[in-house]
Every structure is written in C-alpha cells, then in structure tokens.
C-alpha cells in the first residue's frame, strides 16, 4: 500500500548543528519523487529523516513533523523500528549481508517481522521479490550462494528485492545507482518505473538526467555556504523544474552554472 508523506517545518540536527532547515513538502503516493542538489546540501540527511534512520547516529535528532497518511512518524509513542518496517531503504553502496546467502538476504526482513511462514510461502515470496527486482533469472540457480559473489549491480537489485520483500509503504533510495555502471543504472531506473505502481518512491540522485527520466516530482536542495543549513529551495513537477523553474538558483544548478 503506497502512502503519502507530509513534512512540515522539519529541522534536522547533528548534535547542535542545524543541517537542514524548514522543510515543508508533500510526497505523493505511487510516484517517484527525486531530490537533487549539490553535495552536502542535506538531501541524504533529509531522506534518512523520513524513516528515522537519521537518529541512528549519536546526537542526531529532528524537530518538526513528518506524517505518513496523517500518522506522525515522530510521535511520542512511535517506535522507530516500526517506522523502518513500513518505510524501506536502499543505500548508495550495495549492502547485502555478506554472511548470508542470496535467499536469506531476501528473507531477512520477513524473518525479522517474525511472521510465521511456511517454507513454500517463503519460497514464493523470495521468488516474487527477486522477480520484482529483475534479478530472478540471474540468481535462481544459485539462491544458496553467498550474496557477496554477485556483481555490484546485482547486489543493488538484491538490496531492492530485500527492501520490497516486506511490502513497505514507501521506498527510499539514496543514490541507488551512483556506484553502478550505465547498464546496471538503466536496470535500476526501469525497476523504479515498475515499482512506483506499488510504492511511494523517494530517490536522492546527483544525476540530473536520472531525475528527469524517472521522477514525477523533483525537489531542489541547496546550501547558502559552509556551516549554513541546507534548505529545500524548490519543489515542483519534474517537467517544470527542468524547463521553467520558479527559482533562479534551480535554473543555475540545472543548467550547470554551479554545483
């Protein structure tokens, strides 16, 4: 079930340092939302605050509100573990569990949720998830081999399979293709187009062509200078951002005048 995310007046801190300030944005379900901007502008930090991965670092915290279909994710009795079970994440560098087989990697999230499942059901789910991540054909004969034996692009698709296996409401992707070659990148982008039928997808990318290719909405983050907090400068439909942006800074960034 894809869900919408509403962020209001969000400030994100590392200890006392304000890293991202005053974000207000609504992320639509069943669509791809891309976040672009120069390095260090806080787009990854913002992404990690959506599933409460930000606070894993010591001292990191947020102020403001993030709501998923109206439910406050930072509410006083909300367990971050539950939030992360509903909002999946794919990281910049492929990170399958090296000590597990391909099969066990995909099943890892389901086993965490402690859902009792028959072996055949689990087999089906693993197959479906790997099919969903366009990896099934390549690995179906070696499901019990270590995940670390796959190529980088395959590992990243395995991570996507692992994330979608638990049927999350939202899928966050932090530069999912930046460590991959163009062919693997294309595979991941095609996959995003398929996955947005079922999930809300938020992707951080440095590749503006990628943002233009895959997303419906685009947010542009920027930073005024070193030590300043990053801000969401503009949030608009992708077509508008890349043809006729409201903000001068967006246009400068997109046309390559800086960053």
């Amino acid at each position: 079930m894809a869900k919408r995310i509403d962020v209001s007046d969000l400030n994100i801190y590392y200890g006392d340092f304000l890293a991202v300030a005053d974000v207000n944005v609504s992320i639509e379900p069943r669509s791809v939302t891309a976040l672009i901007g120069p390095s260090g502008c806080g787009k990854s930090t913002f992404l990690r605050s959506l599933n409460r991965m930000h606070e894993v670092l010591p001292g990191a915290h947020v102020e403001g509100k993030v709501a998923m279909d109206g439910q406050d994710l930072y509410g006083p009795d909300v367990d971050p573990v539950d939030v992360r079970r509903q909002i999946g994440m794919v990281f910049q560098r492929p990170n399958p569990f090296p000590t597990m087989s391909i099969y066990d990697n995909v099943a890892a999230g389901i086993r965490l949720n402690a859902r009792k499942m028959k072996r055949t059901e689990l087999d089906d789910l693993v197959e479906r998830s790997l099919l969903g991540a366009n990896l099934w054909k390549e690995v179906k004969d070696r499901l019990n081999r270590p995940a670390s034996g796959l190529s980088g692009g395959q590992q990243q698709r395995l991570c996507i399979a692992r994330a979608i296996a638990v049927e999350p409401d939202v899928l966050l992707m932090d530069e999912p293709a930046s460590a991959l070659d163009p062919i693997s990148t294309l595979a991941i982008e095609d996959l995003m187009t398929e996955l947005k039928e079922r999930f809300t997808i938020v992707i951080v990318t440095h590749n503006m062509q990628q943002a233009a290719r895959v997303s419906e909405q685009t947010g542009f983050f920027n930073i005024a200078g070193p030590g300043q907090p990053g801000r969401l400068i503009e949030f608009n439909p992708t077509e508008k951002i890349f043809s006729n942006p409201d903000e001068k800074a967006t246009e400068d960034y997109i046309s390559g005048r800086f960053g």
């Binding site: 991965m53 573990v81 992360r84 990281f91 990170n95 949720n113 638990v166």
Partner: peptide, 21 residues
Amino acid sequence: PSLHREAALALGATRWEMIRM
C-alpha cells in the same frame, strides 16, 4: 561496516536483531 548495521536497522531490526543479523 556501518553499511551492514544500517542495512539491518533500515529493515526494521531492533538493536539486538541488528547484532544477530
């Protein structure tokens, strides 16, 4: 690597589950 630990946490693992995974 913190990558592996974050992979477990992002799947919705508790601290102890992260340690086990």
